[in-house]
Amino acid sequence: MAEQPKKKVVNVEAPSAKTTQNSAGGAGTASGAPTASKAPKRERVDPAWTPTPEAKAQAGKLRLISWILWALAIAGEAFAIFWVLKQITVNMWLLIGLIVVIGALALIAAQLWKKANRLDPASERDKVRFFVQNQLGAIMTIVAFLPLIILVFLNKNMDGKQKGIAGGIAIAVMIAVGLLAADYTPPSVEQYANEQATVVHLTGEDKVTWTKSGKVFHLCETAKAVNLESKDGQIFSGPVAAAHEAGKDRLTKQLKQEMEQCGFDLALLDTLPDEQAAAVDVTPEDQNTEDAPAEDEAPTETEAP
């Protein structure tokens, strides 16, 4: 029998996200958790996922703010190019200050954009849009810096030392912000849909758990990883869409361990449709490997790292 959670459980209201499947995929019933005998045997599924109206609206606001910040960054770049660099004696402190401000604006905009993408992700089916939407922060950082860097080194009013200092700082800031702005694990509609279908298939309902400090979400309140100590001592419970709205990146990869800890039928892992199994990395190797996010590791001091 699974142990009772040690933390206070906070139920998050289920948002009105829609998920559909073109063929039978979930094995749950209203009476409780599914069993392997009720589950389909690796049938092809094509789940579709749409964000909740609340999530889509919030994503729209974040994207609008991002565009405003990028516009301000490019305006700062234009001011540096068409006024600061045009002076006979270039004000180095003003130029360096503008470089720092442009970098800060670009970084904040990129972080807000990535947050919006987790609320309203793109589809992997459109490769170009998927790449641009998820890497727009890095792209806009280059736009906000590269013309300025080129014109700094071509400027006739600056000596070699000044060009080296200003150009070097601009290059360093552009690289640092670009690396932070890039999305190395971009979300997708397909990922969210497969995660939701997987959770329903394994547990019988669209319900997962997570903590404020963790990066992934889990199958139940009694999963060991979600019960590690944290500052607020709370476990949040709700649908997959709510977990993503709370900033959680993905479903845990410790599915085998959590199926045992939650009291679900392990045989259900073998009945996952191939596309869902591939999407959540359900393989013997992954089932026996510790999850990468810090929340799934042993706690240190008073909070999970």
Score class of each variant (00 low, 15 high):
84 V>M: 00
284 P>M: 12
154 L>Q: 13
144 A>R: 11
232 D>F: 05
58 Q>H: 07
99 I>R: 00
18 K>Q: 15
20 T>R: 11
275 E>L: 15
143 V>M: 04
7 K>L: 15
234 Q>F: 02
79 F>N: 05
69 L>D: 01
113 W>N: 09
233 G>W: 09
222 T>S: 15
165 I>W: 15
93 W>K: 03
227 N>C: 03
96 I>Q: 07
285 E>T: 14
285 E>V: 14
127 K>I: 11
287 Q>V: 05
81 I>T: 06
8 K>W: 07
227 N>I: 06
230 S>V: 00
153 F>N: 02
98 L>H: 07
58 Q>Y: 15
58 Q>T: 02
20 T>E: 14
125 R>I: 10
292 A>R: 13
250 R>G: 08
295 E>F: 00
1 M>D: 01
86 K>H: 01
83 W>K: 01
102 I>F: 15
41 K>V: 04
265 D>M: 00
268 L>D: 01
132 V>T: 11
236 F>M: 04
24 A>R: 13
264 F>P: 03
223 A>P: 00
241 A>W: 14
233 G>H: 09
30 A>Y: 06
228 L>T: 14
259 M>N: 06
189 V>E: 15
227 N>Q: 08
66 S>W: 04
6 K>A: 09
39 A>W: 04
187 P>S: 12
198 T>W: 02
59 A>I: 12
260 E>Y: 05
186 P>M: 11
94 L>D: 00
283 T>E: 13
136 L>T: 08
298 A>Y: 07
29 T>Q: 14
160 G>Y: 03
278 A>T: 13
155 N>P: 06
264 F>Q: 14
198 T>K: 12
243 A>H: 01
266 L>F: 05
142 I>Y: 02
134 N>A: 05
302 T>R: 10
61 K>S: 14
12 V>G: 06
78 A>P: 00
73 A>E: 11
16 S>P: 04
199 V>D: 04
179 L>E: 07
150 I>Q: 08
129 R>Y: 10
283 T>P: 12
258 E>A: 00
158 M>N: 14
125 R>K: 15
44 R>L: 10
32 G>T: 06
4 Q>R: 12
61 K>W: 13
259 M>Q: 04
119 L>A: 10
287 Q>L: 10
110 A>E: 05
152 V>F: 06
243 A>I: 09
87 Q>D: 03
275 E>G: 05
213 S>H: 07
265 D>W: 11
232 D>C: 14
281 D>G: 08
101 V>Q: 00
206 D>C: 11
167 G>F: 15
72 L>K: 07
74 I>K: 09
176 A>G: 09
162 Q>A: 13
32 G>E: 13
60 G>E: 00
35 T>H: 05
276 Q>S: 10
26 G>P: 12
37 S>G: 12
300 T>D: 03
101 V>C: 01
234 Q>C: 09
174 M>A: 15
102 I>L: 10
214 G>I: 08
104 A>I: 15
251 L>Q: 03
270 D>V: 03
21 Q>K: 09
79 F>K: 03
38 K>C: 02
234 Q>A: 09
173 V>Q: 09
163 K>D: 04
302 T>P: 01
